[in-house]
Deep mutational scan, measured.
Amino acid sequence: KLETFPLDVLVNTAAEDLPRGVDPSRKENHLSDEDFKAVFGMTRSAFANLPLWKQQNLKKEKGLF
């Protein structure tokens, strides 16, 4: 399991300012399950079932792209 970080560490943070080991294209993977659901309004599995373009739009909207 990946290390999780608080939302404010990941949202609207440039790649070079992210904690070590965080993939800038997969910031959402480093949210706790609770934060993930609070941000996206759905579970990880529901998010994973969305088309890629919709996932990317949601990530942009939430500052996690």
Rank of each mutant, 00 (worst) to 15 (best):
K60I: 08
P6S: 15
G41W: 00
G41N: 07
L64Y: 02
A14Q: 15
Q56I: 13
T43N: 12
G21C: 10
V22N: 04
E16K: 08
E34V: 13
F5Q: 14
N12A: 10
H30I: 14
K59P: 01
E16P: 11
L7K: 09
L10K: 13
D33S: 07
K27S: 09
V11G: 06
T43H: 12
F65S: 15
F47D: 03
E61G: 05
E34R: 12
D33K: 06
L7D: 10
L52D: 14
K27N: 05
L2C: 06
H30L: 06
L18C: 09
V9K: 13
V22Q: 06
K59T: 03
K27M: 15
P51F: 00
P24V: 06
D17Y: 04
S32A: 08
N29I: 08
K54M: 12
K59W: 03
V11R: 10
D23V: 04
M42Y: 10
E16G: 12
D23H: 09
E34T: 15
L31D: 00
M42S: 02
K59V: 02
P19A: 04
E34W: 08
K27F: 06
L50Q: 06
L18K: 05
G63N: 05
N49M: 08
K59Y: 04
E28L: 03
T43F: 00
D8K: 11
A48H: 13
T43D: 14
S45A: 09
K27Q: 10
K60C: 09
W53I: 10
T13Y: 15
R26N: 15
R20M: 12
H30P: 04
G21L: 03
L58G: 00
A14C: 11
N12D: 12
A38W: 08
L58T: 03
E28C: 03
T13F: 04
V9Q: 08
S25H: 08
F47I: 00
P51Q: 00
P24G: 08
L10Y: 03
N12S: 07
A46Q: 11
P6K: 12
G21V: 05
V39L: 14
E34C: 10
D17K: 08
L10N: 03
L50S: 01
E28W: 02
D33Q: 04
K1L: 02
D17M: 11
P6A: 10
R26Y: 13
D23P: 02
W53D: 12
D17C: 07
A15N: 15
L18R: 03
W53E: 14
G63Q: 04
N29Y: 09
L10G: 07
L31Q: 01
K62P: 02
K54W: 07
P51Y: 00
F36A: 00
T43A: 14
S32K: 08
G21H: 08
K59N: 01
L58A: 03
A15T: 14
K1A: 04
K54S: 09
N29C: 15
L2E: 14
N29E: 14
D8P: 06
D23S: 04
T43L: 01
K27I: 15
A15D: 15
P24A: 10
E16T: 09
K37R: 10
L2F: 15
A14T: 13
T4D: 06
L31E: 02
K1V: 05
S32M: 04
L10C: 01
A38N: 07
E3P: 15
L7G: 08
N49K: 14
Q55G: 00
E16N: 11
M42C: 12
Q56F: 05
G41D: 13
L7N: 05
F5A: 08
G63F: 03
A38Y: 02
E16S: 10
F65A: 15
L10D: 07
E34P: 11
E16F: 02
A38P: 01
R26I: 07
R44E: 05
F47T: 00
G21I: 07
P51H: 01
S45K: 11
D23E: 03
L52Q: 11
D23Y: 05
R20A: 15
R26C: 14
E28K: 01
M42V: 07
F47G: 01
T4R: 09
D35I: 01
L31N: 01
P19L: 03
P51A: 04
V22D: 03
D8M: 03
F65E: 15
H30Y: 14
W53A: 14
D17F: 09
V22A: 06
V39D: 02
E3H: 08
K1P: 05
L10M: 13
K1W: 03
D17E: 11
D33C: 07
L64T: 04
N12T: 12
V11Q: 14
F47H: 01
N49P: 00
P24H: 04
N29R: 12
V39A: 11
F36V: 02
S32L: 04
T4L: 08
R20W: 07
H30R: 06
D35G: 03
A46K: 14
W53F: 15
P6M: 04
W53L: 11
L64G: 05
L7V: 08
L10E: 08
V39S: 07
T43K: 12
F5T: 12
G21M: 07
V9T: 08
N29S: 08
G63L: 06
K59F: 01
L18A: 08
E34H: 08
N49H: 09
V9L: 11
L18G: 04
V11S: 06
T13S: 13
E61S: 11
A14F: 02
T4C: 02
F65V: 11
L10W: 02
E3Q: 13
K37Y: 10
N49G: 12
F65L: 15
A15V: 10
K37G: 10
W53H: 09
T13I: 05
F47C: 00
R20S: 15
S25Q: 08
T4M: 09
F40K: 01
N57G: 10
L7T: 09
L50T: 04
P24R: 05
K27R: 15
H30C: 03
K27L: 15
A14S: 12
P19R: 02
V9W: 08
K54C: 08
K59L: 05
E61D: 07
A15K: 11
G21P: 06
W53Y: 11
P6D: 15
W53K: 13
S45Y: 09
N29V: 09
A14I: 08
N57H: 12
D33V: 06
H30E: 05
T43C: 10
E61Q: 10
E34N: 08
S45G: 14
S25D: 15
T4Q: 07
A15Y: 07
P19H: 06
K27V: 15
N49I: 09
A38V: 08
A14K: 15
A48K: 10
E28D: 07
Q55Y: 01
K59A: 03
A38R: 12
H30N: 04
V22F: 04
K54Q: 11
G41A: 09
T13P: 05
L18E: 06
R20C: 10
R44Q: 08
L64N: 05
V39T: 13
L31R: 01
D35Q: 08
F47M: 00
E28Y: 03
A14N: 07
L64Q: 04
T4H: 11
V39F: 06
